[in-house]
């Protein structure tokens, strides 16, 4: 398996998409979608990150071993976030959402 050379055209296309998505990030932030604000912001950011990882970082053309390492990396990040939140958000007590010390004043 020899090295895959990504063409300049693809790089410029991805660059254009990233620019559009950056403007989109800013534009959607001006509107209030309530609880969906975070979801939309993250969806756009994840899309951008995927484009960078797959094309700029060549993961799409990498060996399976590399792909597994990349996927497991993000999988462990997901574990970190999901398990931590499942702890904090199910704690009984303060303010209906859990018991994290919100600030110094509550310590």
């Amino acid at each position: 398996m020899s090295e895959h050379i990504v063409s300049k055209t693809i790089y410029f296309l991805i660059f254009g998409a990233l620019m559009v998505l950056t403007v989109l990030t800013y534009w959607v932030a001006l509107y209030d979608f309530g609880a969906l604000n975070v979801v939309i912001a993250l969806a756009v950011a994840v899309t951008k990150a995927l484009l960078v990882v797959l094309f700029f970082m060549h993961v799409r053309y990498s060996t399976r071993l590399t792909k597994i390492v990349v996927i497991s990396g993000f999988f462990w990040l997901a574990l970190l976030i999901v398990l931590t939140l499942s702890d904090y958000f199910t704690r009984p007590g303060t303010s209906g959402v859990g018991g994290v010390p919100a600030s110094r004043s509550t310590r």
């Binding site: 800013y26 932030a29 209030d32 912001a41 990150a49 960078v52 990882v53």
Partner: peptide, 16 residues
């Protein structure tokens, strides 16, 4: 990529 996440999460929280 790190900055791609930092920008909306830090700068655009209260933009609306």
């Amino acid at each position: 990529i790190v900055w791609i996440f930092l920008f909306p999460l830090l700068y655009l929280l209260g933009a609306h």
